[in-house]
Amino acid sequence: MADPIRDVDADDGGIGRLLRERLPRHPAPATLRAAVVEAVEPRRQERWTWATGWLAPASAALATAMVMLLWLPTLDTPRSLDPLRGLARAMVTEHERTLSWAEEEPEAVQTALPDVIDQSGIAVTSLFKGDDELQMTSAQPTYVEGHRGLSLGYVDSEGHALTYVIVPGGQIALPSSGRQEQIDRWRALVRTDKDSGFTVIMWKQQGQLCALVAALVSEDDVDTLKDYFVRVREATDIKPI
């Protein structure tokens, strides 16, 4: 058999062959195999269980570190220059935070939802609770930019996480409707930051400021997020303030 090292420069296939022949393979360890086999048993599929203990503390710690490293330098930036930019960043931070709040059992999220809504102070009469494409994975009262509100987490069938935030809109003014995008029957502000890798869709509804955040930045992915916005917007009714 020809030596793959000799052929590395011969053509573009040399490195590929080198990897296939010499890169170690890592089959699943027995413990993982046993855990996955048990998890796929039919009686287990009714429960949505997240990965073991590393996820929540690791994500919370990383989200906090990210806030410290990335957002602290912006504290001196005068908010009047672009208050919406600060708001979008706050929504992204909230999104990072909700990743650590994913519940072990989605049914528990639904059960606790009325109490969470009550604690948040947001008067919703109906809320998007998920569908065949999006599953609600967390619901928490939260504070964003000093405003108490509601933070809901979802995940779609491809593993993309979304966060839906509702806070009192109050003094916050979105740009005129001319700068907002028409999405189905509604208009909303869509901000995509490819450097940070997030898109934020913001809109006002009955005096509340609402936002949908996800790590989706390609054109197709942003279209998907807009589709999710329609589902969320359509299913959510908020009492006017």
């Binding site: 890592h26 699943a28 360890p29 413990t31 993982l32 855990a35 996955v36 998890a39 796929v40 599929q45 949505w48 269980t49 997240w50 990965a51 073991t52 590393w54 996820l55 599953q135 995940v155 069938s157 593993g159």
Partner: peptide, 15 residues
């Protein structure tokens, strides 16, 4: 985290 990532993948795939 590799094993947890794989387990998470299977749970999502089944869901």
């Amino acid at each position: 985290e590799a094993p947890d990532l794989v387990q998470e993948t299977y749970l999502r795939a089944l869901r």
